[in-house]
Amino acid sequence: MAIVFRQETFRDDFTYRNSPENIRRFPFPFPDDNYMYSVNMEPHVKGAAGTVFENLIDVDEHYISEMADRALVLKADPLRYQALPHMMQAQWDTLELLMEQQAAGYPEHFTLEKNGDRWRWINRPLGIDDTFTFGDLTTLPMEPLEYISRQTQGDITIVDQRDNNLWMDAGMVTTQADWSLDFDVGMNFMEWHGPVPLAHQQGVFERALKFLLNMQLGKPIRRYNWTMTINPRLDTSPENYPKWGKDRTTVTPENVGDKVHLRVEVQTLWRLPRSNALLFVIRCYLMNMSELVTVPKWANRFHRVLGSLPTELVDYKGITRYRDVTVEWLSKYDDGAPTSAGTFPD
């Protein structure tokens, strides 16, 4: 079934909204009524129709508008895309994977024809029809990672694996929750995860690194991360802090429903074949509180999760200023009933 793509903005007048169907497929990340950081990794396998796991690379109604927003970010700040020279093979691996997955999941929107190394890529939503030689840089209008990540929802980083560590050596990052590729590029796994409270004491990152180093071809995994964002702004980067930081002071009991968004990242991790690098696709989903409470189970649960969040995490996630007013607003929608197991709507 063809997706009806929305025309909307993630800045200025913020016209981004979710359709009722899209709300129900939102990747609500909380399996319990309280939250604690954990290595919540699971195999990235296809899930039920009507969920974001229907395909392994998810395309939704926001695709065209997200790609337009990414182009605006890149125009203002080209350093949001960076790739170190030794990552070229991994770039081609990534281009192949993202083309294949999108074409397999959405044949009405994307087509990939391979004739040996001569490939034709058709992206109908964006009006692209290019023929190029796989592995030959001169046949694409730009580097392979930039090319395909301008046509894929979600931030994309490629990490090189060497010396028993992972190194963030390439990426396209325009929809991030307050981190910077320009700052992190070239760092290893321990360095770029430096300042997360509570997690370090638990050895979480040591375990996660060991797990990732042994990730296998053909067995991608996924995990959730989440935070909150005021206004449906994709680009909440440190570079742009002056633009969005002050938004956090604008929340009032009257505008919580429209302004306060749950921001969920579905991170998928893939072993790449030729380069042995790992691909991280960090896909951001936004849903405002008015949309969230249309699902009664989520209204109950999110009220409880947010209310019981440890202070350190409230501060780390940068939601201190508006957490209480949001909990108060959500309390009107919590009927006190127990919530059912799992994350999906009842």
Partner: peptide
């Protein structure tokens, strides 16, 4: 099994 690489070249 699927291939596993514990002896990958350093592409730098």
């Amino acid at each position: 099994s699927a291939p596993v690489n514990l002896f990958s070249p350093d592409w730098r």
